[in-house]
Design a protein around this nucleic acid. Structure first.
Length: 822
RNA sequence: GCGGAUGUGGCGGAACUGGCAGACGCGCCGGACUUAGAAUCCGGUGUCCUUGUGACGUAUGGGUUCAAGUCCCUUCAUCCGCACCA
């Protein structure tokens, strides 16, 4: 047989698989469906190793499930809106669409060179008007359901990107994309009301049994639900009240001051005309000028300034000073906090700094507290004191009792709060889906009528960085009449966050050519939810939270019938090299394209799946790649050596005709079939599946200079190729075509024979006091009792236990005997 | 600070239910083939010593057990997430 030459065979098979009908997915209710999806890439221009890993993992699922009779949906597309395209326009004067489509073309070629199983007929490109028409349609749906609204707000602004960002897109005070510091700006912006779904998004995390815990915990933290109470304090001598939110109503008798956020709207009234008004204003300005990072760090010093006004504690009538502080956040709760220094760490620090009063209201039952001996707040459970009728109660019980009391007196009520904020979706950029809204002086905000969608991106724009979208420079775009009254009006010139595009693409795959609706309800309900989703952990909150939100809204709009979009989620680890993430600046970037052209896609796929478990980070090793290439050569060679035997063998034969060595090989084969099946089906343990396939190939090589039973050679080769097929589709297709009928990728998965795995005898370990002292061969399946009886007859046991008392004999069938002596 | 994950040879990793630690691969060493090399094939490869039917060994120290990488507690290290959310 000729040499293994991936450069020749891979393009040959890829051409066959590129036929549109080859991987076509169609609804077939007679078979179970399986929707396997990898996160779609941004078309940056080139595939990187992370993509390679992501799609290789997905391809194993797809091919394995396909061979197991599932009706598989495996689509691919491009998340093609976004800033880099616009950056290319600004820097090099290339039109964003031209730049994007050129990149898509190149990346599609690279994807195809990986030998992946995709139904390309379902390709989704989010920047195509046929797609963003429905992104806009969905925006309108949200609007009609009261879930999209425009408001003026203090928002995150990134100077480098020239646009606002959602809270989820600010990481440690920095822009998620360019890593530059973000600052606040007041702008009128569009929001989606994700907070309406906060509770369900939190609760339904419990339904996601197939998600990594880590991701669920991150989402839980992000949603940040807390239960407490809201009540108001009157201001001494004024009509206004200050509402506060607390999760510790049990400490309400311990209030000794009030703390307001610097943005609190009441401040103006409170400080007007005060002798130190200027000083107070200076404090407010200073605090507002601090970066978000500084302001929200628990490390920063707590500072404040007294307003000269007092509030009245509704439970005991106590007058407490009202302070303006730097540590109360305006965005959370009511922007005002009751100060209980005795039982809150931050209030403690603040009170100590400014010499404010501290009153204990919870005592430590095991060691009574003395204020003068305390150097921080007491935040443990305890017994209520100094709290009127609640004295003596356990504080946990008092929480409820006090809220009941507040509710009965109509002073306050139970309240649930979330850290989650509404999703800011306006972007002052060009390369996104235009927000389909028209502003009319007479009619106000008007949706673009459905029949006028999509609102297309114009090409007469100037690309410049600034606070306004480039769309505002387009004459064509802005020349519009009000759809309601026909008078001249103007368009919204902001576009939508690209995360909107990716929040529903997995649904579009189920019905990608639908021109009337985003997708057909029957189709979406047949294929989705996604059975297996694969992608990086970096989307733990962003994309995965937004998509869950979208799914729930679409369910409520009766466009689909389920609650959660991704039943099982696999977060693959990063690909690193020399201990660091691959990056141009470190010069440790590996190009998948080069690897593929040197060794072939099969080698690249095999290496990346073998080198580490899927969830863990993978250390790229050029030598490891060589090793995978060597293995494929070994496969090729041994099949070549078996060539004549395979051809003369038959599929049905009497295994009793095999000699001992051959029986041994057959046993290894069936053991491997069992192991690989279990690894793929139950554990996603692709690395160990491959290692056992290597063992099988090693075992085959013991016959390289020996005659082998042709029927066995046929059986082994056939099953080896089937098992390898999901991992290395090209070489297996090629070898299969030389010896067997049909297409290997349409064969059914291997079936192991449990009987072939069992040996007549098994080697067991003999231990004395837990230490291995002998290995003996015994008949397979000897019972515990039989082994216990056998133990004293073993010469080595007799030798080592002579003169000692045998206390106990432990036997585990087919495993070991342990003799305990004294 | 809080929450989570991880820690096993020179390296990537295996050991799934407590039952021979180190599968498989890389690297390294030796051998075969070769004029030579490459490739290939075969064998070896945790540490230590007194080379044995030996001792030790899965971050640390302890515990449970006939038996612990695996279960429980302690400490440490690394990574990730959250972090003034009242």
């Amino acid at each position: 047989m000729e040499k293994y030459n991936p450069q020749e065979i891979e393009p040959k098979w890829q051409k066959i698989w590129d036929e549109p009908s080859y991987y076509k997915a169609d609804i077939d209710k007679s078979r179970p469906k399986s929707y396997v999806l990898s996160m779609l890439p941004y078309p940056s221009g080139n595939l990187h190793c992370g993509h390679l890993r992501n799609y290789a993992i997905g391809d194993i699922f797809v091919r394995y499930r396909s061979m197991n009779g599932f009706n598989v949906l495996s689509p691919m597309g491009f998340d093609a809106m976004g800033l880099p395209a616009e950056g290319a326009a600004i820097k090099h004067g290339i039109r964003p669409d031209v730049w994007t489509y050129k990149n898509i073309e190149n990346m599609t070629r690279q994807l195809k060179s990986m030998g992946l199983y995709y139904d390309w007929d379902r390709e989704v490109i989010t920047c195509h008007p046929s797609y963003y028409k429905f992104t806009q349609w969905l925006f309108e749906l949200f609007y009609k359901r009261g879930l999209a609204y425009r408001k003026e707000a203090s928002v995150n602004w990134c100077d480098t990107c020239g646009t606002v960002l959602a809270n989820e897109q600010v990481i440690d005070g920095k822009c998620w994309r360019c890593d530059h510091e973000v600052h606040k700006k007041n702008l009128a912006q569009w929001f989606l009301k994700i907070t309406d779904y906060a509770d369900e998004l939190l609760k339904d995390l419990d339904k996601l049994k197939g998600w990594p815990n880590r991701v669920k915990v991150m989402q839980e933290n992000w949603i940040g639900r807390s239960e407490g109470a809201e009540f108001s304090l009157e201001i001494d001598g004024r009509a206004e009240k200050i509402p506060v939110y607390t999760t510790r109503p049990d400490t309400i008798f311990g209030i000794t001051f009030m703390a307001l956020a610097v943005e609190h709207p009441l401040i103006e009234k409170l400080i007007a005309g005060k002798p130190n008004e200027e000083e107070i204003r200076r404090f407010i300005t200073e605090t507002r000028n601090m970066s978000d990072m500084e302001r929200t760090s628990s490390e920063s010093e707590k500072k404040g300034i007294f307003t000269g006004e007092y509030a009245i504690n509704p439970v005991n009538g106590k007058k407490v000073p009202i302070w303006i502080t730097n540590y109360v956040l305006y965005e959370y709760g009511t922007g005002a906090v009751m100060g209980v220094p005795s039982h809150d760490e931050r209030d403690w620090m603040f009170a100590k700094k400014y010499g404010l009063e501290i009153i204990l209201v919870i005592d430590n039952p095991s060691a009574p507290l003395k204020l003068e001996e305390m150097d921080n707040a007491y935040t443990e459970p305890g017994i209520m004191i100094n709290s009127g009728e609640f004295n003596g109660m356990e504080n946990e019980k008092a929480k409820g009792a006090i809220v009941d009391w507040l509710e009965a007196k109509k002073i306050g009520a139970r309240k649930i709060n979330y850290k989650l904020r509404d999703w800011l979706i306006s972007r002052q950029r060009y390369w996104g889906a235009p927000i389909p809204v028209i502003y009319c002086d007479h009619c106000g905000e008007v949706l673009v009528p459905e029949e006028d969608l999509p609102v297309e991106l114009p090409d007469d724009v100037e690309f410049k960085q600034g606070a306004l979208s480039p769309l505002s420079t387009s004459k064509k775009f802005n020349d519009v009449k009000c759809p309601k009254c026909g008078r001249p009006a103007r368009r919204e010139t902001d576009t939508m966050d690209t995360f909107i595009c990716s929040s529903w693409y997995y649904l579009r795959y189920t019905d990608p050519h639908n021109g009337k609706l985003p997708f057909d309800r029957d189709k979406v309900n047949y294929w989705s939810p996604v059975d297996q989703y694969i992608g990086g952990i970096e989307h733990a909150i962003l994309h995965l939270l937004y998509s869950r939100f979208f799914t729930k809204v679409l369910r409520d709009a009766e466009l689909l019938d389920y609650d959660e979009p991704f039943t099982n989620l696999l977060t693959q680890g990063m690909v690193i090299k020399d201990g660091a993430k691959m990056s141009k600046s470190l010069g440790n970037v590996v190009s998948p394209e080069e690897i593929i052209s040197k060794y072939g896609a099969d080698t690249a796929r095999l290496f990346i799946l073998f080198a580490a478990p899927v969830e863990r980070d993978l250390d790229w090793s050029d030598q490891g790649v060589e090793g995978s290439f060597r293995f494929l050569n070994r496969v090729w060679r041994i099949v070549g050596i078996f060539e004549d035997a395979i051809k003369s063998g038959v599929d049905e034969y009497d295994v009793e005709t095999l000699n001992d060595e051959e029986k041994n090989l057959r046993r290894i084969l069936h053991k491997t079939m069992k192991k690989v099946t279990e690894d793929l089906r139950d554990r996603f343990a692709f690395n160990t599946a491959i290692s056992s396939l290597m063992e099988l190939v090693n075992a085959m090589h013991t016959f390289q200079d020996k005659k082998i039973n042709p029927d066995l050679a046929r059986e082994v080769t056939k099953n080896l190729l089937k098992m390898l097929a999901p991992f290395v589709p090209h070489i297996t297709a090629e070898l299969w075509s030389k010896f067997f009928e049909g297409d290997i990728h349409k064969q059914s998965w291997v079936k192991f024979d449990e009987a072939a795995i069992v040996e007549d005898t098994v080697e067991i370990v003999v231990q004395i006091n837990g230490k291995v002292r002998e290995h003996i061969k015994v008949a397979t399946g000897l019972t515990k009792a039989e082994l216990e009886k056998l133990a004293p007859t073993i010469p080595r046991v007799q030798e080592l236990t002579a003169g000692k008392n045998v206390m106990k004999i432990i036997a585990v069938p087919n495993k070991l005997i342990n003799v305990v002596v004294k």
